[in-house]
């Protein structure tokens, strides 16, 4: 970052948002943590980036951030895509905090559509970018009705969605944004993470979900029970592509399919770039 650019950012409050806005967002976060899985409405601000780029996540990150924090931003597991790089730079410039690509070094990890492979700990906060927070939105379009259904725990519809899946395809084919029930109470959309990541929703870290366009914040506190919905005779299966990673050889991590030429050539590699790179580093050191 140039000195000029850093100086320009001095005109802004720490982490871009003014303190009143942060207070408002923190109150929503606290309420979200107190009522796990419940969608708390908040007055989402206009951010200097388009909706769909993580405006919800950015506001949550800005509100929980302290000058001592170290942030990592991933987009589908990768630290080096446009979205991740832009948001990382944004906080570098507006908050002047440390950034990292290492999962273990980060205190705040903002993520789009993945949970890092490496297990998180109590000192970390995972911030999700959420496009559509309402898990029942596509079956029940009325917000008035879905709010009532949450309030009264009327969740039959969620199973209708899974039923339709099995009826049509012979199996539950929902592969991402797989609905979960939090602490036996609220049904929650875990954002479009692959269902492979669902078991990791039960974590030591604080998990906060921010939907900027939809103006909702919700959260899963550490050590909270998170159960993926299923049927007795069609149990939840957090499967993934049945290959080892072509780069690091991992057989347990979530894989991206990469097309390598225009002749149908393809390879499977870890979606979590930090996980993959650190495995390769260790393999090289060992060699």
């Amino acid at each position: 970052m140039t000195a000029q650019a850093a100086a320009a950012m001095d005109d802004y409050n720490f982490a871009y948002l003014d303190e009143q806005t942060k207070r408002m967002i923190r109150r929503a976060i606290l309420k979200g943590l107190a009522v796990p899985g419940y969608q708390v409405p908040f007055a989402s601000r206009e951010m200097p980036m388009p909706y769909g780029w993580g405006t919800g996540g950015v506001q949550v990150s800005a509100a929980v951030m302290t000058p001592d924090d170290t942030i990592k931003v991933i987009d589908q597991g990768a630290d080096d895509t446009t979205n991740a790089v832009s948001i990382r730079k944004f906080f570098e410039r507006t908050a002047d905090i440390d950034v990292t690509e290492r999962t273990s070094e980060a205190t705040i990890i903002q993520t789009r559509h993945r949970i890092p492979e490496e297990l998180l700990n109590e000192d970390q906060i995972l911030v999700y970018q959420v496009p559509i927070p309402e898990p029942m939105r596509f079956i029940e379009p009325r917000e008035t009705e879905t709010r009532k259904m949450h309030a009264l725990e009327e969740y039959g519809l969620m199973h209708v969605r899974l039923y339709e899946n099995i009826a049509k395809h012979g199996a539950i084919t929902t592969a991402y944004a797989y609905p979960v029930k939090v602490e036996d109470r609220y049904v929650m959309d875990p954002s479009p993470i692959p269902k492979f990541d669902n078991p990791k929703l039960e974590s030591e870290a604080i998990q906060i979900f921010g939907a900027g366009r939809e103006q909702r914040i919700y959260a899963v506190p550490p050590y909270t029970k998170v159960v993926s919905l299923d049927f007795d005779d069609y149990p939840f299966d957090p499967s993934k592509a049945n290959h080892p990673c072509a780069l690091c050889g991992s057989v347990t991590s979530y894989l991206d399919e990469v097309i390598v030429d225009d002749k149908g050539g393809r390879m499977f590699v870890c979606s979590d770039t930090d996980y993959c790179a650190s495995r390769i580093r260790r393999q090289e050191q060992a060699a």
């Binding site: 969740y155 199973h159 209708v160 039923y163 339709e164 099995i166 049509k168 049927f231 005779d233």
Partner: peptide, 18 residues
């Protein structure tokens, strides 16, 4: 689907066996 429409009330009261 028609089947899902009929099944909804059962699932609403806790039926969990497809």
């Amino acid at each position: 689907s028609a089947g899902g429409n009929v099944g909804e009330r059962l699932m609403a009261v806790g039926a969990r066996h497809y």
